[in-house]
Nucleic acid binder design. Structure first.
Lengths: 204, 204
DNA sequence: TTGACACATGACATTGTGTCATTTAAAATA
DNA sequence: TATTTTAAATGACACAATGTCATGTGTCAA
């Protein structure tokens, strides 16, 4: 997390810094991003950056989580909207991710994140469902919303694995969309085919 | 690919360099690995490294592909062994990957690869199945081996997606094994649960 | 013997990181 | 208001890494 001094910053200065960091992380993936570029764009001295953040990663994950939290909320809203149909909720989340326009700031930020998913980055995306991360998952909110009637599960344990499966497939479809520069329509079509396969089972 | 001079190197010198590179890429993930460390361990001058490789990445992907090709061969052998049962073949591949001992050189190399899967790295692991990569996929070998009788598919198109699904789930199980430091047994158990869910379908 | 060529070498310019002693500003206290 | 204390800002610096390039070395064919 950023240090206290960051949050105490006057809004204008903080926003300028955030925009500068976003621009740098949109230009190149985390590992190639440079603090020097960020401070140059934000017009702050190098030492100040370290007054606000531990390091590059600290700034990056702050931005990534901020972006992602918004979508988590929308996902939970979708679950409500579709009476707990988890497939429909994932489909809506997937579509939401496709909406990002190439011209918008967020597009390249997201693209760089997805094409360079370290385990830590994937964690940010999936921790909402992660049994093991008690403090950041939102299973208590999600689980009761879900309509388990239509899911083909025997025990509570299997439910967790179902989420894991849907998540990995959704995630890979998203990565592929960006790596292959697919159109919205093409990406959605592939996604739906795979979701239907998941539903009906791969085996006779 | 490494340059010609690399392959012309006397075997001893080349092996020493390979071992040095492997050691460095086992120590830290690609983005943090340093050429300086490699040349120090290999006892070659810095300029020589650039005589042999384009850069760090060039050396890395050479080693990664070398390691992975061996396992691809074993995967195809498994497919034969189980009369084209793709689930059994994937299970054997998964088990093979679990066999890596913590003490062995390969363990940390693999771990660093899996916990920092950029799109390029994932490509190395999955290109054997990739329709779009005509020169490196091995679908011509694999497809005829597969027993499609027991697969729940309507068209040829769906077959490709089935592979995609199994691959993503297998891959994530592998990543999780390393990120959570799971035992061989625990990892295998989870993997089997998810493969069975895939077979029977997630939906009633 | 000489010239051509491939390869080897390490110093160098450049770019980046994280730290720290010092300065500046703001807030608390007398 | 004057003084002290605390927090924040600043940029020079030490260190590490990258990729290049001018120069050196050795081999082989003419």
């Amino acid at each position: 997390m950023p240090k206290l001094t960051f949050f105490n910053l006057p809004e204008m200065k903080r926003n300028k810094l955030i925009r500068a960091a976003e621009a740098e992380f949109s230009r190149v993936p985390l590992s190639q991003a440079s603090i020097s570029n960020i401070v140059k764009a934000a017009e702050i001295p190098r030492g100040s950056f370290y007054q606000y953040f531990e390091n590059k990663e600290d700034a990056y994950y702050f931005l990534l989580e901020e972006q992602w939290n918004k979508r988590q909320d929308k996902f939970i809203a979708s679950l409500n909207k579709y009476n707990g149909d988890i497939f429909e909720a994932f489909k809506e989340l997937f579509q939401l991710m496709l909406e990002e326009k190439k011209t918008e700031d967020g597009y390249n930020f997201l693209k760089n994140a997805l094409l360079n998913v370290t385990h830590e980055i994937e964690d940010v995306f999936t921790r909402i469902f992660d049994e093991k991360q008690i403090d950041t998952n939102r299973l208590k909110e999600i689980t009761p919303l879900i309509n388990k009637e239509c899911l083909n599960i025997s025990g509570e344990d299997e439910f967790y694995h179902i989420i894991q499966i849907i998540t990995s497939v959704t995630f890979r479809n998203l990565v592929e969309k960006y790596s292959r520069n697919m159109s919205k329509e093409e990406a959605l079509e592939n996604f739906i085919i795979e979701m239907n396969l998941l539903k009906k089972g791969l085996y006779k």
